[in-house]
Nucleic acid binder design. Structure first.
Length: 826
RNA sequence: GCCGGGGUGGCGAAACUGGUAGACGCAUCGGACUUAAAAUCCGAAGGGGUCCAUCCCCGUGUGGGUUCGAAUCCCACCCCCGGCACCA
């Protein structure tokens, strides 16, 4: 009798005792680092979503191992960060107590799931042995000029007097006290990821990743080509004319320059003060103040928000038309994209159009689709202000109109010509812009690695000397975020005070900690080197095990984690610490699990507790069901009733294999079974490689059905390959049955993945559909590879075909050998 | 609004390069075993029609198109899910 509870724990213990899952990192001949996204060890324990992902990755690792690779499958814990800290606050327990107990709980659950984890090499980001090197990485970037301090806005709750993470701001309100959140400027550390934007984009062309993930990264990086244009100030405001001042704008459509009728600056733009006319100053200042208190999140979430703005009283000159354009400020122009200023072309930009309508500004048409151009009209005379109320959408084939010497040019060429013409006058330059922002890594929080910087009044910010690392996170009793936006670490005077590494004078330690994404940006580099304390990653081990052979994880990390870790790898490569510049040559995202058609969430009460299912059905059945319920890379719907299928299947496998072992018959006496075996091997091998686990399981079921048809007892040679092939999905039962078939344990060390023989797949006779006018009318059996005349003759003997051909002529015969025959009649 | 992904039986899903739509499984129904039930085994099954056949019609979100032949390719549209969101 198959009893999972009797075998699973036994095999897990056996693996542990025999070091089955601990490859020799130095001796491995075919190293394969099988990476899964390490979890955040929440207090709730292992989520079924984690297990879904891990199981999918584990199956691939076990498959590779059975095919001869030395698979290293480590795991770790992403245990720093705001999630842990908030939870600690909520349950009023210090994270230094909470996290270790969460990790122990996770480990217990993970062990029960039958993963091929190497438990001798785990990583915990909160371990000083780990974050010593997180700090070391910060210092490398700092020394390379890639870490810099600048002012940036943070979410600020005026009631709680604290900085909030974006996740803590719900619809513009503080999640704890429902107070409207403000923006506040704080000095923060940034990594200059934008310096790497183009390279991060270019490498996407050759790395082997899911397309959806690549697309997400491309969109996130958001490259746009255009030009930077200069608009000289006309001095109508404060007499700046002649001072050489100008407003710089970035535009992707320099061809629409003739249609620019006003300009808009972001409220925070540095030129606002000097442009503002005295009589406008009160209004402008009021607007700037109001804009600063409008929460950014709110600003972005609201649909169709009415445009607001005020006129500064200042003007700038359109370099193409020579006209003076009024300069406005409005919060729809963002300071952190482009130059924080735009030329407004209301005739051809929806936002500018809305703004112009709101404030009665003029609207000029300067591009026109070629098709809409009146016959014989001069493009220089078309368009203009008469189109005052019309917003003209961009189309494919458009030309410039009403644009002086550029009229009649194709829009694209016009843009280039216009940029060139302006460039000659020092008024423009082609430019590429990215939506990507520099990476803010400062957190005014407690639960993270302290940023290893010391501030000296004389020497400025100094890196903590590498020999002094780690800067240990001290135990601080009151770890709540502070009233001032200063990190809780500032409360610890012993921590805060430090000597300047350069001059020895009294100095202050940085009290902010770093972003969790910095921890997770390099964890995979640490796995092969966990025993070394004098280096973050051992060069020989790196050469052998990295880049990561296969990375499987959730789509929710498509941009941040995957982009940051690519960036760090590139930087470490450029600084000579790594020999490769892309960390994951192959990445596949897994889908999302839902339950009974609904998203899984605590509030819905449809959470799946993996522990309970494993206790009830066994890990093998649970794993198999998770993989069978839908395509792994797309996710699927978890229904309790579905577990019955894999459960029955494994029982049947057990019965068939034990019966075969008892009977002891060898060889193949049924060509049908042998053919089914080879077909199964082919299908399962190809499906596992493609992570198409649901169809692989189906193919295994199919083969077992053939094997058992008519109640026959299978031979040992017929069942052995099946045991090996289900091993990646159901490792415990496979180990057990492998022994019963006389194999030496572990199956993962001693079994060889079966090979299929194409010649065994061919059949002598094929079933061939016969169509008349493309509709199925009969099915005939013919010899494989039968020529057209033979097939045709057989088809014409079918009663149903004869009936269809009565009184009509065959006009055409389409014959695809071994696939189909189609008779086209008139 | 933009960018992805998807829409196929009662349900989860398969379907190679356009070539017998619905593999595999769940639930269901019928039968066997059983005092009975569970479990197990065998069998049926997309919908409809009918002269009950080895037949016919309809059928992969909707409408059109290409083709001897379309779930698959093209055009237009509808709906669902996820992400981003005033990015100039």
């Amino acid at each position: 009798m198959y009893d999972p509870s009797a075998i699973e724990l036994r095999w897990q213990t056996w693996w542990e005792e025999n070091g089955t899952n601990e490859p020799d990192l130095d001796a491995a001949a075919r190293p394969f680092l099988n990476l899964m996204m390490y979890p955040y060890p929440s207090a709730e324990g292992l989520h079924v979503g984690n297990l879904y992902a891990f199981t999918g990755a584990d199956i691939y690792g076990r498959f590779r191992r059975l095919r001869g690779d030395d698979v290293f499958e480590p795991i770790g814990y992403d245990a720093f960060g705001i999630h842990s800290e908030n939870h600690a606050l909520k349950v009023d327990t210090h994270p230094m107590e909470l996290i270790p107990s969460n990790i122990r709980n996770f480990e217990r659950m993970l062990r029960g799931a039958g993963l091929m984890t190497d438990w001798s090499r785990t990583v915990d980001t909160t371990d000083p042995r780990y974050y010593k090197w997180t700090q070391w990485i910060f210092i490398q970037l700092f020394k390379a000029g890639l870490a810099e301090k600048k002012e940036a806005a943070v979410n600020w709750c005026p009631k709680d007097q604290t900085v909030l993470a974006n996740e803590q701001v719900i619809a513009g309100l503080c999640e704890r006290c429902d107070t409207a959140v403000e923006q506040r400027m704080l000095s923060q550390w940034f990594f200059r990821i934008t310096d790497y934007a183009q390279r991060l984009l270019d490498n996407l062309d050759w790395i082997d990743w899911s397309d959806t993930t690549k697309t997400a990264q491309r969109n996130w990086i958001g490259r746009s080509e255009g030009a930077r244009l200069h608009f000289p100030l006309s001095g109508a405001g404060d007499g700046a004319e002649g001072a050489g001042d100008r407003i710089e704008v970035f535009t992707t459509r320099p061809d629409t320059l003739f249609g620019a009728t006003f300009m808009v600056l972001a409220p925070e733009h540095p030129l606002v003060g000097r442009l503002t006319a005295d009589e406008r100053r009160a209004d402008v200042e009021a607007y700037v103040r109001a804009a600063a208190t409008v929460d950014l999140v709110e600003r972005q979430k609201t649909d169709d928000r009415e445009k607001t703005g005020v006129f500064t009283g200042g003007y700038a000159r359109n370099p193409a038309t020579g006209e003076d354009l009024p300069v406005w400020i409005a919060d729809y122009v963002l300071m952190d994209y482009g130059t924080g200023a735009i030329m407004a072309v209301p005739g051809h930009d929806q936002r500018d159009f809305d703004f112009a309508r709101q404030f009665g500004l003029s609207i000029v048409q300067v591009v026109c689709s070629r098709a809409a151009l009146p016959e014989g009209a001069d493009p220089a005379d078309v368009g203009g202000v008469e189109a005052e109320t019309a917003f003209v959408e961009h189309t494919a084939d458009e030309i410039l109109v009403n644009s002086g010497r550029f009229s009649g040019m194709e829009a694209d060429a016009g843009g280039r010509a216009m940029t060139e013409w302006l460039a000659e006058r020092g008024l423009a330059a082609a430019e590429v812009n990215y939506r990507l922002h520099d990476w803010c890594i400062s957190r005014q929080r407690y639960w993270g690695p302290p940023i290893p910087i010391i501030y000296c009044d004389d020497c400025g910010p100094q890196a903590v000397p590498e020999e002094d690392l780690p800067v240990v996170l001290p135990y601080v009793e009151d770890f709540r975020p502070t009233a001032t936006g200063v990190s809780p670490l500032a409360r610890d005077p012993a921590f805060h005070a430090a000597a300047c590494p350069a001059c020895g004078a009294n100095a202050r330690r940085e009290t902010d900690v770093s972003d969790t994404f910095l921890d997770s940006g390099w964890y995979f580099l640490r796995y092969p080197s966990t025993e070394f304390d004098d280096r973050p990653f051992d060069p020989a081990r790196m050469r052998k095990w990295l880049p990561v052979s296969s990375y499987i994880g959730g789509e929710e990390h498509s941009v941040l984690h995957l982009l940051y870790s690519r960036f760090l790898t590139m930087v470490l490569h450029d600084l000579g610490h790594l020999e490769f510049e892309e960390p994951y040559h192959r990445f596949r995202k897994h889908g999302l699990l839902i339950r009974d058609g609904a998203k899984i969430s605590k509030s819905r009460g449809n959470v799946i507790l993996p522990d309970e299912y494993i206790a009830r059905f066994g890990a093998d059945t649970f794993r198999m069901y998770l993989m069978f319920l839908g395509p792994f890379q797309r996710g699927g719907d978890f229904r309790d009733s579905g577990l019955a299928g894999p459960q029955r299947f494994l029982k049947k496998v057990w019965d068939s294999v034990t019966a075969a072992a008892e009977a002891g018959r060898t060889g193949f006496d049924d060509p049908g079974v042998e053919r089914a075996l080879h077909a199964g091997i082919k299908q399962i091998s190809e499906d596992l490689e493609a992570l198409s686990y649901n169809t692989a399981v189906a193919a295994a079921m199919d083969y077992l059905n053939t094997l058992r048809a008519g109640g026959r007892t299978a031979s040992v040679d017929e069942v052995r390959p099946l045991v090996i092939m289900i091993a990646p999905v159901a490792p415990h039962i496979a180990e057990e049955l492998w022994v019963r078939l006389g194999g030496e344990s572990s199956i993962f060390d001693h079994a060889e993945w079966p090979a299929w023989d194409e010649s065994k797949l061919v059949v002598d006779e094929v079933e061939l559909p016969v169509q008349v006018n493309g509709r199925l009318r009969a099915t005939i059996r013919v010899a494989r590879g039968a020529p057209e005349d033979v097939v045709r003759e057989a088809a014409l003997a079918e009663a149903n075909v004869i009936r269809r051909l009565d009184g009509v002529a065959i006009r055409k015969v389409i014959h695809v050998p071994d696939r189909m025959l189609n008779l086209v009649v008139s």
